[in-house]
Design a protein around this nucleic acid. Structure first.
Lengths: 200, 200
DNA sequence: GTCTATAATGAGATAGAC
DNA sequence: GTCTATCTCATTATAGAC
């Protein structure tokens, strides 16, 4: 699918708006106004709102995949690799916050259809990547082998995703504990590495 | 605020619909049809869609608080208490999935205003509860004291929330790893307790 | 409290000129 | 490719009868 410059412009604006307010929360008029063109012009590039939304999803998720592969080339010991992966992942979902929100929306929304499938696909690919990394660590005997990599991956991912989507609320907590998201991510990663229970 | 039986009926239906499709994705007509009354009838009980939505949020979050306090009366050793708390929390967000989704929506949505504040308030209260429990454990010397309780709480909560909202996707993963959500929760909790890194 | 009817507005989408 | 104008329909909300 080849995109004209104007179509790309529309996609970028639409991605931002859809991620902020959801499919039903954004009108074609609003998108057109933000791009600075007429509503009919959008219909010249996309046949319907639905098609535009799916195009946004495709465009965004493609972008996601590109950055995922960048996470593969990490050097160092296993724990270093994992730490770096986790840290980069958190950075990533913040940089690409629109896409992240779109995916999270698709998870919650009861609209299913094609959007959900696309989101799940990217999700599965990310998990597969992390799974491979974890399996290597297990083979080297650096992390526990009695737990399936998928559960470790879920724990790791869950903490980062939660940090991302709850940050607006966490920030306002008393005591200035949640001041820097990246720092909190590191602390929680270390926590997952070594556990919080004291064993003598 | 006193609610007539009919008003309560409307709230329950609206809560379900709003949680599934969001504010803009649900029309007053759809709510009326599902309740089995006329649209104008809803306006007799609530002055606007906005007011209805806020009422839903209040109604739902009140319910949330009730169940939260039920989590306070847990007996046993610290780790047992925490394990139970985590397990009950996961069960809870699944039982009250509508409310959980509403809160998650408010976190993602850029509609802010009063809804976000309400969601954050419940969120803060839950955190405060877990924080107290964790501090007690720290005082007893059963869990690490070098990490702030809030970060442990965030890790614990994040794993559960992630499990809940990503479950539709996780379920379809190959290898039948994610078959029972409650079991996965237990595994991940143990992981956070003892860590995944092997230390000699 | 509940209804039918209707206003008023905004939505998605199309026609056709330039 | 872009526009103005327009169609059609769904939406929020109100009026007023019962």
């Amino acid at each position: 699918m080849i995109l004209t410059p104007r179509a790309t412009e529309i996609l970028i604006v639409a991605e931002k708006l859809f991620s902020e307010r959801g499919y039903d929360g954004v009108s074609m008029q609003k998108i057109a106004t933000d791009v600075g063109i007429s509503k009919a012009n959008i219909y010249h590039h996309f046949t319907s709102k639905d098609e535009l939304y799916l195009a946004v999803l495709n465009y965004a998720l493609q972008d996601m995949n590109g950055l995922l592969t960048a996470l593969q080339d990490i050097e160092g010991t296993s724990t270093e690799q994992l730490s770096h992966f986790s840290s980069e992942h958190l950075k990533h979902i913040n940089t690409k916050s629109s896409i992240s929100k779109l995916i999270l929306r698709e998870m919650i929304d009861d609209r299913s259809s094609r959007g959900k499938e696309l989101a799940e696909q990217v999700f599965a690919e990310y998990f597969s990547l992390l799974r491979t990394l974890l399996r290597t660590c297990q083979d080297r005997g650096e992390i526990r082998s009695d737990i399936d990599p998928d559960h470790i991956a879920a724990a790791l991912t869950g903490m980062n995703v939660f940090l991302f989507q709850s940050w607006p609320a966490l920030q306002h907590f008393p005591g200035q504990i949640f001041k820097n998201q990246q720092d909190s991510g590191k602390i929680m990663f270390e926590l997952l590495c070594n556990g919080f229970v004291i064993n003598d």
